[in-house]
Design a protein around this nucleic acid. Sequence first.
RNA 1: GGGGUGUUAGCUCAGUUUGGUUAGAGUGCCUGCCUGUCACGCAGGAGGUCGCGAGUUCGAGCCUCGUACACCCCGCCA
Length: 588
Amino acid sequence: MFEKRNYCGELNASDEGKQVILSGWVQRKRDLGGIIFVEFRDISGIVQIVCDTKESAEMAELMDNIKSEYCLFISGTVRKRADDAVNTNMQTGEIEIFAEKIQILNSSVLPPIPVESDNTVNEDLRLKYRFIDLRRQDMKDAIIARHKVMQTTRKYLSENRFLEIETPILNKSTPEGARDFLVPSRMNKNMFYALPQSPQLFKQILMVSGFDRYFQIAKCFRDEDLRNDRQPEFTQIDIEMSFLTIDMLIDIMEGLVKEIIKKITGTEIVLPFNRISYDEAMNRFGKDAPDMRFGMELTDCTDIFQQSEFKVFSTALENGGIIKAVVFEDGNKISRKITDELAEFVKIYKAKGLPFVKFRDGKLDAGITKFITEEQQKQLIARLDLKDNEIVFFGSDSENIVNDALGSLRLKLAQDFGLIRNDFNFVWVLDFPLFEYDPEEKRYYSMHHPFTMPRTEDLTLLDNINPENAGQIKAQAYDIVLNGVEIGGGSIRISDTKLQNKIFTLLGISEEEAKEKFSFLLEALKYGAPPHGGIAFGLDRIMMILLNKNSIRDVIPFPKTTRGQCLMSEAPSPVSSQQLDELSIKIK
RNA sequence: GGGGUGUUAGCUCAGUUUGGUUAGAGUGCCUGCCUGUCACGCAGGAGGUCGCGAGUUCGAGCCUCGUACACCCCGCCA
């Protein structure tokens, strides 16, 4: 009976008179007495069913029983609707199906959350009853769009000589980086596998093995605290190539992104994307993932306030800090209440306050104006190119705090006052520092990962590294940023054992330690390892932005809560003492 | 680990101003009527552990303390 199935959303006026067979669910029933309309839904869409209950007592009784979300089998005839009965809001609004036979395949209890709704329902209910939530149109659209992106990715990469290769999920724990999820080994007592944070080492090994273009749509796992754009398990489009330059990689990846955008939005984006250095991103936007859809860039004013009577400024400068400014276009919208709120806001980022001045009638006014000399005022007006009614917010502290606070303030103001264009803005961020210095532990950390190739011209600096100049050593690493969200990142890798060992030494990883953790990679690099590099895209984040969602949970079929629980399956859960015994595990 | 917001009918919310009779609305649900609806309409009805636990009080949805859960943010996420 299901063999010759038709799909609700695919029927149209050209099917008039056709006998059709539909299988799906009751979205809504409108009982007008002698005639009943049913909005009938399957994966493809919705079509209206008409039942004449005056003609047949049998049909009348059957229809009386049918309620929302019943699963039905319907055979009937496609009819064109009368002109005044056409529903232009409906894909299939020109037609309806005159039901000849209806069979109830399964009844449904009343769903706890409505299928016909936007996502205003509490998220914990949506997650608990995900099987109902996924029936809703916007979740269905998201899952279908995700499928299309994966298919487009596979097609594009395959056509560009990439091979899809799987790598292990059960792997070795490496304490560098994010916290691992551990899996106890039954056959090897007191030993653990770790779930992969990424297939990093394996894809590099594949390069050594000569599979010179690899990709994988890979699940990755990180046991860290969660956010709206972070899940404990997430999906990467993982890519690695041999014999490449950064320009080659960018070229191929822009092609992939273009295909994805075309598939999902139907629009052609302009290539190439903008490129910006890490340093410039930090200076102009205060973030390494700048949202460049609007202005309000940060301006350094440290030099103007070298001699300042304003204690906040002078103290910051004495401590080696900087002073930067952000200008907002409409000071009239910024009341005393709002400046207080914004001052509270920047404290999240460890700023101590938020001094400001307004610009009216050609001169500074209000806020900290009285602490600024005439000469400084003149310079400031010129530097910031101030226009009437603008308001200037200052950050003065260490460079990190100022960038963090003002970069976040810039975003908040733009969001609160609707200054952000609805657009897809891609930018490559290049020339990341190779290391970060941790003053507390007095050691260097890799900004990307320990296998990242330094810029060739910076190699000599490695021998004289100190906390001051460490930031000048740049990596051949890159991020791709979409609307201020990092959607991908990668690097050219080190393919030389000597250099790799040198980097380990600088990172304070001893020879024994390196051997213990990465010996197979170091060993592999000895056997004619090709120059190689790659990138990984966060599929969930890409989908989130393309579909304009607030959270990656809305593009993942079965996500977890911010405490890492699945409200539907109730994972994680305790296990039996027998299971623990087999693993020789004792619970504290 | 820290900060914030929220939790009242199946769902979405109001009610907390000033603690005070029987806690409301919309929607959904149930029953009846209705042959062109499409957010169908009309009439009637059911539906509440005010997250949970203490406390203050003659009296708590409302005040205090604790706690659970969800979400957002800082830290964390090579």
